[in-house]
Design a protein around this nucleic acid. Sequence first.
DNA 1: ATTAATGTTCAGAA
DNA 2: TTTCTGAACATTAA
Length: 283
Amino acid sequence: MVRGIRSAVEGRIIQDFESCPNRCRPLTMTPSLPVQRERVRGQRIVEVRRRAKRIVLLLEDESAFVIEPRMTGLLLLSDPPDREHLRLVWKLSATGGETALWFWDRRGLGTVSLYLKGEWERHLGPERLGPDALEMTGAQWQLFCQSTTRPIKVAMLDQIRVAGIGNLYASEILHVCGIDPRRRACSLVRKEIGRLGEAVRYVLEEAIRYEGSTLSDGTYRNALNRAGSYQNQHRVYDRAGFPCPRCGFAIRRIVQAQRATFFCPGCQKRRLWKQLREVPPHS
DNA sequence: ATTAATGTTCAGAA
DNA sequence: TTTCTGAACATTAA
C-alpha cells in the first residue's frame, strides 16, 4: 500500500479531507472527522511510512495520520471496487490540478487516527507494537519464543510481541519452516527458531512481491484497484483437503484462538522437522 | 430464512 | 501478569 501511494502523496498539500456520501456507518476515527479536517487542511504530507500493518502519513506540523486497514480497508488513488464503500477522501494538490487519495473499506473495521507530535510515536511504540516482523533478528526470535507458552501460531499474531504478521501469513510461514502450529512457542529449539525467522522473511517478501492475496471475497487490491496474485502461491491457506505441495498429505483446517489455521500434518510435525525442500506453488 | 465464517484490534473478564 | 472472550462490521456460503 505504501509503495503504491507514496509517489502520488508525498509532498502534496491536503486541500480537503472529507467523508464520502454513502449509506455505510461512519468509520472509527480519533479524533472525529471534523476535528481531523480542521487540523490537516492546508498541510503538506511530508512522508508516507509503514509501521507493521499500519500506514503512517506524516504531516509538516509533525502530527500524523495512522491508518489501520484491518481486513478490507484499501488506500486507493483511483477506481474503487465500488462507490458504495468509499469512506474518506484526501483531496491533494497536484501540479496542474488536483489528485485524491481514497479510503475504501467494505466491512468498515478499519480506523483512521490523527495523532499530534509525540503522540503517534507512542501509539506505534513498544507498549503497543512489538518489533517489525521483517526486522527481527535471530536473537529477537529467541526471546519471542521464550516469552510465552501459547501455541506458536497464536503467539505470532500477538502484535505486541511481533508486529506485522496476519492470520493468513502465519499459516503459510509455519508450513514453509515445517513447524506444527500447535507447538508451544517456548518448546521450539534453536534450529527451529532459526528456520522460523527465515521463513517469516521469505513468505512476507514473497507476498509483497506478488502484491498480496486477493481471496474469493475480493479483499486486497493495490492502490490502482488491481488484485494481488499471492493467493495462487498459497501452500496451505484456504486449501483444506488439498494435497500438501511438499509431501502430498491432505491439508487440515483447525481453529486456534477462534481463528482458522491451515497446516500439513505430514510435514509440520510436533517434534523436529525433517529435511525441507523448496515448495513449488500449487498448480 | 437462519447461521457460520472471514481478519484485526481492543476492552474487559478470567 | 498473562491469556482468553466477545464485540465491532459487511458480505457470502452453507
